[in-house]
Design a protein around this nucleic acid. Structure first.
Length: 417
RNA sequence: GUGGCUAUGGUGAAGCGGUUAACACUUACGACUGUGACUCGUACAUACGUGGGUUCAAAUCCCACUAGCCACCCCA
């Protein structure tokens, strides 16, 4: 394959798209900041074992989607397929719990999963995620969800809707799982091949199978929510109560399934119908056992991650708002030197100034000034050079006035109007 | 890993066995006044993903490969 072709599933984000990305990132930083979150930056590679332990050995991510390899020191390393594992590793390694009993972190950056690319999915993709460590109280679950909704509202995206569920805990989930498995076993012949396979790996998945027959078959399957232990039930009820108290719209989806093993209790997704097969724009949940499982203190955690590509897809393309303050059109070599000198001086004062670098005709330069949507154009020719005075033209009105070739006076002219 | 669809310039595309491979945008130069937008003119695919085949003749038909897209699986 030609070396000028990128790797499958690894996409360039061109300048016109980057504007959107910057808006998403800036909104996240701003909104998450309001809720007291601090950014953490962790490496994009970790020991393979970390992901296997946290995400779960039997998950598809670990089984077949990781970019894993042996480095030159014979270490088994993996390009992060998600963010939580690395952040929790850093939390434990640096004992962040001693700084504050409540740790609120957010991160953003590329993740890697070897999957077949399709709409809203690529092999290198980007997530923005947030995690809270140290709080069991359901108020923090609600707050995290409110923050997530706040973020989307600020971006002008009201379409994705919040769905929540509870997955129970290690005390009550096994019983539910057994109950569901029993239910499915009785109806084995009505399930699709995939669901039969899921029986062993993860029976919960049968609940969101897209095959029509399976949907009907599992319509009256036992619900997790009926099998929650007292603690989990109380927790879930409280989360719902707090969401209602803060007027945060949500629906309960007891059939929602998560792909990572570490989730407990509250799980949630922000779903949209506008992204083809990819309905989840952001998703997450509580992971009360993860930190201890990784060898850290017994602290609870909850977090979410959103797919930046998916958010960007939902955002309408926006016009590039930026345009130069001034274009200096020069006629002749000496004028070109003067234009260059003025440009640098004005740039040092913070103005965006453009010039022509190739000695093009005045007409060409004016055309370019227009195309760049420069607010002003300063025209310098031989005559102007003699009097040290150029013509300053306001492009919108076409009005032009003589203006001394003086950076501070020009700066003044650019600042007003 | 499995399936379906598609592959023409920088972009969007016409073309359906014999055309100078339309048209539009973009870009470059020029005309209209040393000075942009509108208008007009000129230029820009030895070439139709790659490799084979059928035919007097293929961008147009057939095969293989590759890539992209969408979907399954799974997931943010």
């Amino acid at each position: 394959m030609a070396i000028t072709t990128g790797i499958k599933g690894f996409n360039d984000i061109l300048p016109n798209q980057v504007e959107k990305w910057q808006l998403i990132e800036a909104t996240a930083r701003r909104v998450f900041g309001i809720y007291g979150f601090s950014e953490i930056r962790v490496p994009i590679m970790e020991k393979t074992e970390l992901f296997a332990r946290s995400i779960g050995d039997a998950t598809d991510i670990v089984e077949k989607e990781m970019y894993s390899f042996t480095d030159k020191g014979e270490n088994l390393v993996t390009l992060r397929p998600e963010g939580t594992a690395g952040v929790m590793r850093a939390f434990i390694e640096h004992k962040l719990q001693v700084l504050d009993p409540v740790t609120k972190l957010y991160y953003l950056g590329p993740m890697f999963r070897y999957e077949r690319p399709q709409k809203g999915r690529s092999r290198q993709f980007h997530q923005i995620g947030a995690e809270v460590v140290g709080v069991t109280n359901p108020r923090v679950d609600a707050q995290l969800l409110v923050m997530l909704c706040h973020f989307f509202t600020d971006l002008g995206l009201t379409e994705p809707t919040l769905q929540i569920n509870s997955l129970g805990c290690p005390d009550c989930r096994p019983a539910y799982r057994a109950s569901l498995k029993g239910f499915l076993l009785e109806r084995l012949e009505r399930l699709c091949d995939d669901c039969r396979r899921r029986m062993e790996t993860n029976p919960l998945r049968a609940l969101d199978c897209k095959v029509a027959g399976c949907g009907e078959t599992t319509a009256d399957a036992p619900s997790v929510l009926d099998h929650l232990c007292q603690g989990c039930d109380d927790h879930f009820v409280a989360v719902r109560r707090h969401l209602e108290a803060t007027a945060t719209p949500f629906t309960i989806n007891s059939r929602m399934v998560r792909g990572l093993d570490y989730y407990t209790r509250t799980t949630f997704e922000l779903v949209t119908g506008l992204l083809g097969a990819q309905s989840a724009v952001a998703a997450g949940g509580r992971y009360d056992g993860l930190i201890q499982e990784l060898g850290g203190p017994a602290l609870p955690g909850i977090g979410f991650a959103m797919g930046v590509e998916r958010v960007a897809l939902l955002l309408a393309d926006r016009e590039t708002g930026r345009s130069p303050d001034l274009f200096i059109a020069a006629h002749g070599e000496a004028a070109g030197d003067e234009a260059f000198r003025l440009m640098i001086q004005l740039q040092r004062q913070g103005f965006w100034v453009e010039i022509d670098y190739e000695g093009k005709s005045l007409k060409s330069q004016m055309r370019r000034a227009d195309k760049l949507k420069a607010r002003f154009t300063l025209i310098i020719g031989e005559e102007e050079l003699l009097t040290a005075s150029g013509m300053l033209k306001a492009m919108a009105t076409g009005v032009q006035v003589a203006s001394p070739l003086d950076p501070s006076l020009l700066a003044e002219a650019l600042s007003c109007s």
